[in-house]
């Protein structure tokens, strides 16, 4: 039996509907790295997308989580030895991130910060503040947080900060038109 044109049209219309409504104008990003340069890229893309009215969801996992810790904060109580070690050795907050290349014990990092200022590039702290104003969601992977022994009270105050697992990321990524892994 051959399908009539009407039947084929109906099938196509259904397919188009699915395509049109399954992908939102949304960017979902996994941020895994705690390198200063990669974090900068992540935030510039996120803020740029939000400026274009794209909904942005950032998922912070593994090393990147340490960048969302409060800079001046004593470690939370009740941690074991490994968790204390992680807490001490990993960067506390965006300000302590290192360059992935040419860090040179921090000299490179200060040089790049100087150049950024000279070229009017926003600092990570400024970008984070703008991200908050633009309503960018940040979710922290709770599994990685537990691995590193980080506690919620050690995390920065950010307006749209949440805690989630991989299913949240997958569900959000599935309905996004853009997905990035940084």
């Amino acid at each position: 039996m051959f399908e009539t044109i009407e039947q084929r049209l109906e099938k196509l219309e259904k397919k188009v509907d699915v395509l049109e409504y399954s992908r939102k104008d949304q960017l979902t990003m996994v941020v895994m790295s705690d390198d200063l340069d990669k974090m900068l890229a992540a935030f510039i893309i996120a803020v740029g997308a939000a400026a274009m009215d794209t909904k942005v969801k950032m998922f912070f996992t593994f090393w990147a989580i340490s960048a969302l810790r409060k800079e001046h904060m004593k470690q939370a109580k009740g941690k074991d030895v490994t968790a204390r070690m992680f807490g001490t050795m990993l960067p506390k907050g965006l300000g302590q991130l290192k360059l992935s290349k040419m860090n040179m014990q921090g000299i490179g990092k200060y040089m790049i910060k100087g150049i950024m200022k000279h070229n009017n590039v926003s600092s990570l702290d400024e970008l984070l503040a703008v991200a908050g104003e633009l309503g960018i969601d940040i979710d922290i992977c709770t599994m990685s947080m537990d691995l590193m022994g980080f506690k919620k009270e050690e995390m920065i105050d950010y307006p749209n900060l949440g805690y989630a697992g991989v299913a949240t990321f997958l569900a959000d990524a599935g309905e996004s038109s853009m997905q990035l892994f940084i």
Binding site: V47, G48, A51, M52, N119, N120
Partner: peptide
């Protein structure tokens, strides 16, 4: 003019 990417875009928005 005092900002760099994505500053001008933000300003325009």
């Amino acid at each position: 003019r005092g900002t760099s990417c994505p500053g001008p875009l933000l300003a325009a928005k």
